[in-house]
Structure formats: structure tokens, C-alpha cells
Amino acid sequence: MKEITHLIRKEISLEWKSKYSFNGLLLYVISTIFVCYLSFKQIIDPPTWNALFWIIMLFASVNAVAKSFMTENRGRLLYYYTLTSASAVIISKTVYNVLLLLVLSLINLLFYSIFIGNLVQDLPMFIIGMILGCMGFASIMTLISAIASKAGGNSTLIAILSFPILIPLLITIIRFTKNAMDGLDWSVNYKFLIILVALNLLTMALSYLLFPYLWRE
């Protein structure tokens, strides 16, 4: 447990030291939203609003999570290997990426609402959906990023490997947040909530179990 908190703190302080990468992500999200604003002007159709929001989020999270294992050079990974266990590394990376995506999604929501307009009727429900979505995105992509970095690939490889397996999560999350936008009752969204939680638990359990096999070399 102590190892995990130390590793998370290390990630955050690394991010803080080289503000360039986080600022880059911020600029990426904002300029994407601005491009969308200029091309769409205004969106009055809730499904389109929702789909566009999640597509922006999808590409932003590929960029955000892609570097989590790419930037680690061989020497540093070897250093971790002598210090901590594989499970501590994957848990800390996943938790850190969840935090990163949550911050990104809030910024995304803010600027998206300013430029394109906010059509959400049930904001608390939408934000719960957003949190669950970010957790799922982060946990899937962290393991995929580890796989892709072992394969010596670039961010194209991450996109190819992660998009198909993100689809189930993405359609469920789009349905959930669409219901939140329409201000539907909780009873409608209950089954989607269960699937989202189950998907999150499944991916986290799988990455916890599978990562040690990638780790040892």
C-alpha cells in the first residue's frame, strides 16, 4: 500500500515538474473543442452532442494514457523491478491515469459547455457516468499501453489495440449519459450502471492478474 502511494506521488510530481505534457493535453482538448465549435457552430441534437463529447474524450484519453509506459525507459523500469512488485506498478499507474482522465474530462465538459452549449438535464447523473467512463478508459488503456510499449510500438498501435475493446464500454457509457441528458429516472439507467461497474471491475482485475506476465523479461 505504501509503495503504491509513493509511486502515485512520484507520477504526480513528475507531471508537475514537466508541465509541458499536461499543458499539451489541455491544449489538445481545447483546440479540438474549438475546431468542433467552428465546424458544428451549435449542436441542438442531444445524441450528437453526447457522441461528440465522448469521441473527444476518447482521443484525448488515448493521448493522455499513451505516454504512461512509453516514457519509462528501460533503465527506470529495471529500477522499479528491484524496488517494487508488478502489482504496485500497475495499480499506481492505473490510479494515476484515472485521476488524469478525471481532470481532463472536467476540463472537457467545462469548455464543451461554454463553446457548444450544455444540453445535460441531470448533471449529477452525467458526472457519475463520466467518472465511471474515465475509470474504464484509464484501466483498459493502461494495460494496452504496457502491451504496446513492450511491442516497441507507437501511439498508432495503442489506438488499434484499444479501440475495438473499448467499444462495449463506449456504447454503454454513451447510452448511460444520453439518459442522463434527457433527465430520465434512475430506474431506467440502473442496468447500465451495473454493466459499467462490472466492466470496470473486470478490466481492473484482469490488468492486475495479467500485468506480471508483461513485466518480467
Binding site: 502491451i147 513492450k150 484482469l206 506476465y213
Partner: peptide, 27 residues
């Protein structure tokens, strides 16, 4: 195809196939 070393290729693709299969089952 993107990995040359046989052992490494086998291990990494096994991890990917298990991970992907579990998520596809849900789908």
C-alpha cells in the same frame, strides 16, 4: 507481426488475447 522475438511475441499476444476476449464476451 510487430514483435520479432518469439518468446516475447508469444507472451504479449497471449496477454492481449485474454484481455480482449474477456471484454468481447461482455459485448
Amino acid at each position: 507481426n510487430s514483435i520479432d522475438d518469439e518468446q516475447k511475441r508469444a507472451r504479449i499476444s497471449a496477454v492481449y488475447s485474454i484481455f480482449a476476449f474477456a471484454l468481447m464476451t461482455v459485448f
